[in-house]
Design a protein around this nucleic acid. Sequence first.
DNA 1: CTGTTAGCGCCTTCAT
DNA 2: ATGAAGGCGCTAACAG
Lengths: 338, 338
Amino acid sequence: MAASIEDVARLAGVSIATVSRSLRGLPDVATATRDKVLAAAQQLDYVASPFAARLASGRSSTFGVVVPFVHRWFFAEVLGAVEGVLRGAGYDLLLHNLGDSEGRERFFSVLPVRKRVDAVIVVSLALTADEVEALTSLELPVGVVGARFPGLSSVRIDDVAAARQAVDHLLSLGHRRIALIGGDTDDPMRFTPPHHRLIGYREALNAIEVPYDPALERLGYFTVGGGEAAMRELLELAERPTAVFAESDEMAYGAMRAIRRAGLRVGHDIAVIGFDDHSNADLMDLSTVRQPVAEQGALLTHAMLAALADDTEPTDTVLPTELVVRGSTVLERSVYKN
Amino acid sequence: MAASIEDVARLAGVSIATVSRSLRGLPDVATATRDKVLAAAQQLDYVASPFAARLASGRSSTFGVVVPFVHRWFFAEVLGAVEGVLRGAGYDLLLHNLGDSEGRERFFSVLPVRKRVDAVIVVSLALTADEVEALTSLELPVGVVGARFPGLSSVRIDDVAAARQAVDHLLSLGHRRIALIGGDTDDPMRFTPPHHRLIGYREALNAIEVPYDPALERLGYFTVGGGEAAMRELLELAERPTAVFAESDEMAYGAMRAIRRAGLRVGHDIAVIGFDDHSNADLMDLSTVRQPVAEQGALLTHAMLAALADDTEPTDTVLPTELVVRGSTVLERSVYKN
DNA sequence: CTGTTAGCGCCTTCAT
DNA sequence: ATGAAGGCGCTAACAG
């Protein structure tokens, strides 16, 4: 059997209370005593039972982290950053991957994090009022990456402004017939970004009085295949768009393929800009709006740890995005158009 | 405060032992009694404290899952599958993302899963003898995805055979000067695949007595950039390769870009085949050897759950791979070569 | 079929 | 600065 706190106490010749205090670095322990205890613990290869500690203290030193799909780039990237910060702070990470809307419902009705975490981090879900309420009922610090909700901490970007950055770029290149390939704003998994990026797109057009054409707004469902299908439809329009803004790089990849398969050249015949600066965007020579992904996760995690320590109010942080121009929105376009 | 088992017992008019039995679905409880208890529990919105249960029972209903980098496609994909199976079985998942070799060392020396999990799943690390020993010292079922070690359960593919599938395909198209872009077999994170895929590559050449040329074996470090750099070097050789086998699709993407940037055509001037059937391989029109990724994770998790239930011997399962031919290894190559 | 009673291993007052 | 002792909330014999 593994050593228990009593074994350590016996070997060090002190009480278990002193062992507990020494090992946790609490004050009011004589240095000599602490050293004796540390030596004994090391000799016995002692590790405290987290369950006993948690039961006795009421603290779990664990975060619950909820993601819609671990295997998608954005969520995996955020998760990695969150994990790193938690590990550094001595916290465990309990992963909850929703997977689909059924998994989502189960999570919010069962709330499997109950009685087992000190805080919860939710990544990029547009929570319903009921869901926010469910999370609030936990009476724990709750943080969100990628969206803001009353009463919850958050770190995010300004999706509306970022979408405008993208569309403004296309406008500045002279494009006026600009299509949108977006996410479903009625998606059962309800991400916030589609909604805001659509608004940004329309605002940008509106700002210089380019009338917006519903026929140019298509759904790409945040997948490569979806982006490709949407682009195919756009290419069949009587009056084809000269540029496309895709709400994610992955959809943009699909759009680029559709363009190439139609015998047209990306950037020359049709400009394409994406969103994210996904790890392959550079490879694909895709212009995009970069959002700091890992940073959002790390920053929120730090904020949550601070909240746990100081019992402070929820915070909301908005991080900047950055236009990244690559070959898919080349300037020489006019050369080929004329 | 949240309700405890005593509150439920009081409301149902039974002892806490009966509540425990009823809620866990143990036998020897009268149906009427069980119903009373369930009703009381529901009314109080009762959830058992996992820490108390774990302390008392000695079981944690938790798996530790170790991945080198969550944010990389393969690991994220496996993780998602593992999570799904565990969730379905009522298990929690404690995530450990190593990140770098420092994180790796820390994990294996500290073993932060001690006293908190029932089993450990390690994804695709070539463990050293010391590391296997450290895991074994936990005296828990340990499983590995993507490699095999004595005493540990595993689900994996045959990397040697899969690499041969890829190279045989190139050989069958008439290629004889075939380069390799591989992972570092001395990588501090020590994945097994590079080693085996290199062997498969050499075996395939050997089988038809094509002499293997060390100048054609380059390191791509499993990144797009690494693959591109490796390909650039290969293109500068006096006697250029006519085909390339990359040990991962991501490296193949980089190689394809290098080929295009050199003004050559992928598939026509130089054939490229990757490995994995990464989610973008279809998009890139890249031929590859598909390995079942999520399946490996799910299968191993089921095996581990079974091992926990039956206390059976470690198992080893090898899943098949499949050649997927796309445009990057087109047959019409000869048309252009002649 | 149900209740009683020890623990599980640690944290945390409260004394000293 | 240290020790004694009572929980934390549940499980698991053991009785009955």
